[in-house]
């Protein structure tokens, strides 16, 4: 099986041909990252090696997404000043500012 990987993305897959949007820059905690327009923010973050999307309310435990289909609410982040955005569903756009929520 001959998949090829580059910068967190699968660039060659034995079955699937990925149709990606154009490359865009976005901000995570102030740092500039690259992702593809239209993919969920959580996907772009994961490809950039960022799995910790928040720290939990009581014990400040690191949390990532769990279901990736908008059911579990484990991926809530602040996007362009909006709170509680489910980043597993929210499409990435050029220049978005993504932050871990402060509670």
């Amino acid at each position: 099986m001959s998949a090829r990987i580059s910068k967190g993305y699968i660039t060659h897959h034995p079955i699937i041909e990925f149709k990606r949007g154009k490359k865009v820059k976005f901000f995570f905690e102030g740092q500039v990252l690259e992702g593809y327009e239209g993919e969920p923010i959580a996907a772009a973050l994961h490809a950039n090696g960022i799995k910790v999307l928040s720290y939990s309310v009581r014990y400040q435990r690191p949390r990532g997404f769990f279901c990736a289909v908008g059911k579990c609410a484990s991926c809530l982040m602040e996007v362009d000043g909006r709170e509680n955005v489910m980043v597993c569903m929210e499409p990435l756009r050029e220049g978005m500012r993504v932050r871990r929520q402060r509670r």
Binding site: V57, R58, R61, R63, C72, S74
Partner: peptide, 8 residues
């Protein structure tokens, strides 16, 4: 062992 992720 976390059971309820939202409320920790």
């Amino acid at each position: 062992k976390i059971v309820c992720r939202c409320e920790d």
